[in-house]
Design a protein around this nucleic acid. Structure first.
Lengths: 353, 353
DNA sequence: CTGTTAGCGCGTTCAA
DNA sequence: TTGAACGCGCTAACAG
C-alpha cells in the first residue's frame, strides 16, 4: 500500500509517477536516462509531470545501480583568504551545465582531512574530484583508490610537486618578473618575507628570484635575504606586522620586500608604519595573490595576480574532458601570473651600484 | 564470481569482508550498526579488519536502505567575504565528532540555487541542513519538503525575517550601541551608507539607529541621512570608494558614517582620502563585520563584530539537538554583537547642539 | 514501442 | 549468537 492511484498522494518514486501517468515505471526510467524507445509524446508528458510535481529520482538508488553519481567533489583547504574563492562560481556553473553538482569539503589545510574527503567522494561514487592546494601525492593510498575507481581527478595548484593531471601557477616566472620590475626601479637588495626553504610554493618562487639575478650575471645570495614569518601561531596579517622589525634590519639594507602573500604584506605595511618607515619611499613592497582589498589601501599594494580565473577555467576544462573520456594529457598545465604594478613599490631609496 | 576467497582481492562489500573473515555478512552488518548479538572478540576482529583494509560500507546502499545518510548539507551564499568563513571549521569538527560529514553547496547568493541545493540535500537523504544567510522563507516549497522529510534545518542569520529554528545576529541592538558610542564622541549628524529601506538586515539596523536617537528624545530622521550604494554592479570595495562624494555632501554635514559592512567602509576610506577628507579628524567611520584586515589599516577600522563564533556554536548545538530528537524550540536565538572601538571613529569635528 | 526479470549493497525481520 | 529471505528505488538486458 505504499503507493495508490490517488492523485493527491506524494510522488516518491518512479513507480508512483508511473501509476500516476498510467505508464510502467520502466518507461519513466527510459525517459530519465534518455534512452530510445519512448514516443515523443510520452516523453514530453513524463517530463512535464516531473517538472510539475517536482519529482526527482532517488540519487542514492540511482548511484547504487549505476555505480556513479552526478556529484563532483571539491576539496578546499580553507574558505577565508582563498584567492580562488570567488572564481569557484565559474566551476559550479560549468559543471551544472553538464548536469553535475559541486559538493565542497573544507579540509582545514589538513592532510588527513583531505584524505578522508577523497575517501568519502569515492564512497559516494562521485563523477569527479577537484582538489585545491592539495597536500596529497599521487602515491597516497586515498589518491590511488580514487584513480583506481576510475574517478577523474584534477589538482589545482597543489602544494607539493604537481602530480599528473594538475593545473599549476607559474610561480617561478611570476617572481622573476617581479624582480625584474624591481630592478627596473633601481632595486638590488631585496628581502623576502615568509618564503622559507620548505615547500614547493616557496622553492619555485625562490628559484624565480634566482633566475632574475642570474639573467643579469648576479648571484642572488649576495643580494637577497630571507626572513621567516615571526610566529606560525599568528594569522598572516599579524605575522606580517610582527615581522616589521626583522625586515627593517640595520644589518641589511633592503630597498624592497617580496612577501609570501598580500595578507602578510598588509600586516607588514602596518608594522612599518609603526616604525616610521615609509612605503614606498623608504621601502618598496610587493605582495602576492591580488586580493581585492589591496587596491584600496594607501599606498595601493603592488602585487602578483595568480590568475585564479584562468586556473579554474583550465581545471574545469580538464575535468570535463576526463569525464567525457578524453585524455587531457598528463603534463601539468602551467598558468602564467601577472604583475600588478601599483603604488607600494617605487624607485629605490638611493642609486645602488 | 564477484568475490573470491583470495586474500589479495579488493574488499568492496560487506560480503567480501565476511568471506575474508569467514563470517556471514549479516554479522558484519551488525557490528557496523552497533547491534547486540555479536561476541566481543568477533567485533574487535571485524573492526580491526575494516581499519586495516580501509573498508567503508557503501554509503549509497546504506542511505537507500536506512532512508538517511550521515551527510549534513551546508548552504553557503558565497565563499569570499563571508564573515563566518573561518569559523565553519568549528561546525565541521563538531559534526565529525558525531559521525557526520559536512558537504557544502555554494549558492552564489541566488535564491534558485539555494532552493536547488535544498532539493539535492533532501534527495541525498541528508541528516540535516544548515543554511547561511538564507533567502528562503519557511513557506517555500523546497523548505517545506525538507521539513516534511523530517530533516532538521537550521538557518543562520537569514536575510529574511527569521523562520523558526533560526540563529540570528542582533543587528538592532548592535547598531544602537554603535550610535550611542558615536553620541558619546559628540556626534549627532550621521550618514548611513548602503543601508536601504529594503531587506531585513537593513531594516533591523535602521531600527537600532532610531532607538538610539529615541532614547535621547530625538527623532532620527532629523539627524540621519541614508546614502545608497553607488552602483550595484560594482564590488563592495569599489562601491564604497565611488560613494565618497555622495557621503561628503555639502548639503548635509555628517560627522560620522555607518557603513553596511567593512568592505564598503574600506572603499569609502580610500575615496575620502582622494577627496582630502581625513578619517577620523573630518569624518568618523564605523564598519560592520570585523574583517581581520580592518585592524591593519591606517586608521584602524572601528567596526561591529557579529560574533560568528557564537553564531556557529549556537547553530551547531541546535542542529545536533534536532538530530537527537530534542526540540531546540522554535524561537529564534539572538546573538548580541560587540562594538570594536578602534581609530576610524573619533571625537566629532565640532561640538554640536 | 512497452513490459519483465534480475540485482546494485545494505539493514531489518524472522527463524534457527 | 548466527543465518536467511526480503526489499529500499533504480537501471540494464532481454522479451514481447
Amino acid at each position: 500500500m505504499k503507493s495508490t492511484k490517488n492523485t493527491r498522494d506524494a510522488i516518491r518514486s518512479t513507480t508512483d509517477l508511473a501509476t500516476r501517468l498510467h505508464l510502467s515505471r520502466w518507461t519513466i526510467s527510459r525517459v530519465l536516462n534518455g534512452h530510445s524507445g519512448v514516443s515523443e509524446e510520452t516523453q514530453t508528458r513524463v517530463r512535464a509531470a516531473m517538472q510539475e510535481l517536482g519529482f526527482q529520482p532517488n540519487s542514492l538508488a540511482r548511484g547504487l545501480r549505476k555505480g556513479t553519481t552526478n556529484i563532483i567533489g571539491i576539496c578546499l583547504p580553507e574558505i577565508e583568504g582563498l584567492y580562488l574563492g570567488q572564481k569557484l562560481e565559474f566551476l559550479r556553473r560549468a559543471l551544472a551545465a553538464e548536469g553535475f553538482h559541486a559538493m565542497a569539503a573544507i579540509t582545514n589545510g589538513d592532510l588527513q582531512e583531505e584524505a578522508q574527503a577523497f575517501d568519502r567522494f569515492r564512497n559516494l561514487r562521485a563523477a569527479g574530484v577537484v582538489s585545491f592546494a592539495s597536500q596529497l601525492t599521487a602515491r597516497h593510498p586515498r589518491v590511488r583508490s580514487i584513480t583506481e575507481a576510475g574517478i577523474p581527478l584534477v589538482f589545482v595548484d597543489p602544494t607539493i610537486r604537481p602530480p599528473k593531471g594538475s593545473v599549476c601557477v607559474d610561480r617561478s616566472t611570476g617572481m622573476q618578473e617581479a624582480v625584474e620590475y624591481l630592478f627596473s626601479l633601481g632595486h638590488r637588495h631585496i628581502t623576502t618575507l615568509g618564503l622559507g626553504p620548505d615547500g614547493h610554493y616557496s622553492r619555485d618562487r625562490m628559484q624565480g628570484i634566482s633566475h632574475a639575478y642570474a639573467a643579469h650575471g648576479w648571484e642572488a645570495r649576495h643580494f637577497v635575504r630571507q626572513v621567516p614569518l615571526a610566529n606560525e601561531g599568528l594569522s598572516h596579517y599579524a605575522n606580517g606586522r610582527a615581522s616589521a622589525a626583522a625586515v627593517w634590519n640595520a644589518n641589511f639594507h633592503p630597498t624592497a620586500v617580496l612577501t609570501v602573500n598580500d595578507r602578510v604584506a598588509i600586516g607588514l605595511m602596518d608594522g612599518l608604519r609603526s616604525l616610521g618607515v615609509r612605503v614606498p619611499e623608504d621601502l618598496s613592497l610587493v605582495g602576492y595573490d591580488a586580493m581585492e582589498v589591496g587596491a584600496f589601501l594607501s599606498p595601493r599594494l603592488t602585487t602578483i595576480d595568480a590568475r585564479p580565473d584562468e586556473l579554474i577555467a583550465a581545471a574545469t576544462e580538464r575535468l570535463l574532458q576526463s569525464i567525457r573520456g578524453e585524455d587531457p594529457g598528463a603534463a601539468p598545465e602551467v598558468i602564467p601570473t601577472r604583475l600588478l604594478p601599483r603604488d607600494s613599490a617605487g624607485p629605490a631609496r638611493e642609486p645602488e651600484a
